[in-house]
């Protein structure tokens, strides 16, 4: 049986991860921070190839890496829109209009909750408590919190996205 070569991580990530690994007594401990960086750098999601390349880098079985990646909701295991809108729907936000914010975000972007807009620009998703309870409702747009949202804010912020 011919062995196929596993996919390889880009050089800049490999050297970054070597430095990360040095923070810990075990190599594997850098896996989660590394997956975050892969998601940022490699198209906004963790493809099977990326997971396999990480497994190879960390000396783990691909299934182990998949097990970790699929456990944490921040990791996207399917392609997503170029911009990610994560609307908190937990209690403090729900009490101040999170469902309306979600509905508005879906309407403005054309993405269903948990899906991708037809033009591929946006994904909107529901998320659990983001620790912005005293400035609810909120969403996270590409890693930046937008808080104390009115429906007008939602419309304006999402229309301004390039």
């Amino acid at each position: 049986m011919a062995a196929t070569r596993p996919p390889v991580l880009p050089e800049h990530l490999r050297s970054e991860f070597e430095e990360l690994v040095s923070h810990y007594p075990e190599r594997k401990a850098a896996l989660i921070p590394a997956l975050h960086r892969c998601q940022e750098e490699l198209g906004g999601w963790l493809s099977p190839d990326t997971l396999e390349a990480c497994a190879d880098f960390f000396g783990l079985e691909p299934v182990e890496v998949f097990g970790v990646a699929s456990f944490y909701p921040m990791f996207q295991l399917r392609p997503r829109g170029r911009h990610m809108v994560s609307v908190c729907h937990n209690i403090s936000c729900a009490l101040r209009g999170a469902e309306e914010v979600l509905e508005k975000a879906c309407e403005v972007t054309g993405s269903p909750a948990g899906g991708i807009s037809e033009d591929g620009r946006f994904s909107v998703q529901r998320v659990e408590c983001q620790g912005a309870c005293a400035s609810a409702p909120m969403f996270d747009l590409d890693g930046v919190y937008h808080e104390n949202l009115t429906l007008d804010d939602v419309e304006r912020i999402l229309r301004e996205v390039k």
Partner: peptide
């Protein structure tokens, strides 16, 4: 001191939480 983007002890070790 290291500041890392992960959660809990298991996550710190690179495992499922």
């Amino acid at each position: 001191i290291c500041g890392e983007e992960t959660g809990l002890m298991e996550s710190l070790e690179g495992k499922r939480g």
